[in-house]
Lab assay of single mutants.
Amino acid sequence: QAKEDFKKMMEEAKFNPRATFSEFAAKHAKDSRFKAIEKMKDREALFNEF
Score class of each variant (00 low, 15 high):
residue 14 K to N: 12
residue 39 K to F: 10
residue 9 M to N: 04
residue 9 M to V: 01
residue 17 P to G: 10
residue 43 R to T: 05
residue 38 E to T: 14
residue 39 K to Q: 08
residue 28 H to M: 15
residue 2 A to K: 15
residue 11 E to G: 09
residue 46 L to H: 03
residue 7 K to T: 10
residue 22 S to N: 14
residue 36 A to R: 10
residue 32 S to T: 14
residue 26 A to N: 09
residue 17 P to W: 08
residue 16 N to F: 06
residue 50 F to T: 00
residue 4 E to N: 03
residue 4 E to G: 05
residue 19 A to I: 15
residue 35 K to I: 15
residue 11 E to D: 11
residue 20 T to Q: 10
residue 14 K to E: 14
residue 43 R to E: 00
residue 21 F to A: 03
residue 40 M to W: 05
residue 25 A to V: 11
residue 21 F to Y: 10
residue 27 K to A: 15
residue 8 K to D: 05
residue 31 D to W: 00
residue 46 L to E: 02
residue 35 K to T: 14
residue 1 Q to V: 07
residue 20 T to S: 13
residue 28 H to K: 15
residue 38 E to N: 07
residue 44 E to I: 11
residue 41 K to S: 13
residue 34 F to C: 00
residue 40 M to D: 15
residue 34 F to P: 03
residue 3 K to N: 04
residue 34 F to D: 02
residue 13 A to W: 13
residue 48 N to R: 08
residue 18 R to Y: 13
residue 36 A to Y: 01
residue 20 T to I: 08
residue 48 N to W: 04
residue 13 A to D: 14
residue 36 A to D: 04
residue 16 N to L: 08
residue 35 K to F: 08
residue 32 S to I: 09
residue 38 E to A: 14
residue 48 N to V: 04
residue 25 A to L: 05
residue 42 D to E: 09
residue 37 I to M: 07
residue 27 K to R: 11
residue 30 K to Q: 15
residue 27 K to L: 15
residue 4 E to P: 00
residue 46 L to K: 05
residue 15 F to C: 10
residue 42 D to I: 04
residue 12 E to K: 02
residue 46 L to Y: 08
residue 1 Q to H: 03
residue 43 R to I: 07
residue 22 S to L: 11
residue 43 R to W: 00
residue 38 E to R: 10
residue 27 K to E: 12
residue 39 K to R: 12
residue 44 E to A: 04
residue 9 M to Q: 04
residue 23 E to C: 02
residue 43 R to K: 07
residue 15 F to W: 11
residue 36 A to M: 05
residue 46 L to Q: 04
residue 30 K to I: 09
residue 22 S to H: 09
residue 50 F to C: 06
residue 10 M to V: 14
residue 37 I to C: 02
residue 38 E to C: 06
residue 5 D to S: 07
residue 24 F to H: 02
residue 35 K to P: 02
residue 49 E to M: 15
residue 24 F to A: 01
residue 31 D to G: 00
residue 8 K to S: 08
residue 3 K to P: 04
residue 19 A to L: 15
residue 8 K to V: 06
residue 2 A to S: 08
residue 22 S to D: 12
residue 24 F to I: 05
residue 18 R to G: 15
residue 25 A to D: 06
residue 26 A to M: 12
residue 50 F to H: 04
residue 9 M to D: 03
residue 32 S to A: 14
residue 22 S to G: 14
residue 44 E to H: 05
residue 3 K to M: 11
residue 1 Q to W: 05
residue 2 A to R: 13
residue 22 S to Y: 06
residue 32 S to H: 12
residue 13 A to G: 14
residue 46 L to T: 06
residue 35 K to H: 12
residue 40 M to G: 08
residue 6 F to I: 01
residue 29 A to T: 08
residue 18 R to I: 13
residue 15 F to V: 13
residue 48 N to P: 00
residue 37 I to W: 00
residue 11 E to V: 11
residue 29 A to W: 08
residue 19 A to P: 07
